[in-house]
């Protein structure tokens, strides 16, 4: 066990021995040698990327433009000026002051998304480890079943699920949103796919030789090896949970809202002030963008590690 921790690369290198070690290739890559892709690309690439980025960013920027404007200007000018107007902070203050339980919603969203993300990563990796690396009866069938469960239309589950939550007395409480999302078919599928190629059998073997039981092997070998994919899964789950609207709306309601439920309430007045609504959109998205700036780095590092380990 301890032996393994100190030198995790030995079995790995052994595993990839036939291919002459991906590690070595990766190391070489830093010196930008070998395959053509390792050369610095030319301006065409950056132009293309710039265009992709512009398309990605504009709709959100459009929301910022409207959020910094006012309702009248928005209605009069279909194409907003490219420079934000001066009303952004005023509009944001209006969002924060509005009777929509903003901060409660914010912390609810944060708590739900964080717990869900951690839980999904843990249970999905556990199941993915089992599906991809362990032999047991009915494995293939059960995996197909997992994928098939994704095909169940979720809209209709609402009534039976609500009845269930009501029986448990969870209506209006955060666990009604957290518990059903604690492990997802997507997550299991995703981790299975990843561990299939990223986790060498030799690593598990080595751990077992050291006397680890399967859970220890999972904990000390599979979990670390799964990190790049797990980071992505965590981020995806966090975002999915943060942006989810319908189920939290039904089961929690505006009394104990999540952020999208609360922001939606900005539309409740007879007159729909687009500058206010868009400010709400921007304010609800900013935390994710911040998370994204930090986790995004983590994510990219994760992907790079994935390459090295592959």
């Amino acid at each position: 066990m301890s032996n393994l921790k100190q030198e995790p690369s030995i079995p790995q290198i052994r595993q990839t021995a036939g291919a002459g070690a991906a590690r070595a290739a990766a190391r070489k890559r830093k010196k930008s040698s070998g395959f053509g892709a390792e050369r610095r690309p030319r301006w065409v690439t950056y132009t293309l990327l710039g265009a992709v980025l512009a398309i990605s960013a504009y709709p959100m920027y459009y929301a910022v433009l409207l959020a910094s404007s006012d309702a009248v200007t928005i209605a009069q000018t279909p194409i907003p000026s490219l420079i934000p107007q001066g009303n952004f902070f005023e509009n944001v203050t209006r969002v924060l002051d509005a009777d929509i339980k903003f901060w409660q919603a914010f912390f609810n969203s944060l708590l739900i998304a964080a717990i869900t993300a951690l839980s999904v990563v843990f249970f999905s990796t556990l199941a993915g480890f089992s599906f991809s690396k362990l032999r047991f009866k009915g494995r293939a069938g059960l995996l197909v079943f997992v994928i098939a469960t994704m095909a169940v239309p979720t809209q209709l589950g609402v009534v039976p699920l609500f009845i269930l939550m009501a029986e448990l007395g969870w209506v209006g409480q955060l666990q009604a949103v957290i518990i059903p999302g604690m492990v997802t078919a997507f997550g299991v599928f995703w981790m299975t796919q990843y561990l299939e190629s990223a986790l060498p059998y030799e690593l598990i073997e080595a751990a077992r030789v050291d006397g680890c039981n399967l859970f220890r092997a999972f904990w000390s070998v599979a979990l670390p090896a799964a990190r790049p994919a797990a980071t992505m899964l965590a981020l995806f789950t966090f975002v999915a949970s943060w942006t989810n609207f319908f189920w939290p709306f039904i089961v929690l309601g505006p009394a104990n809202p999540t952020l999208p439920v609360s922001i939606q309430l900005l539309q409740s007045s007879f007159f729909k002030d687009q500058s206010l609504i868009m400010s709400g959109v921007v304010v609800a998205t900013i935390p994710l963008v911040i998370l994204f700036v930090f986790a995004g780095r983590q994510l990219v590092t994760g992907i790079m590690q994935g390459a090295v380990k592959g």
Partner: peptide
Amino acid sequence: WRMGVLLPYVVAPVAVSLI
């Protein structure tokens, strides 16, 4: 660049629809 392409994903579907 990688973060740039993922940016739209963090915008909630409700917000995307509004925009």
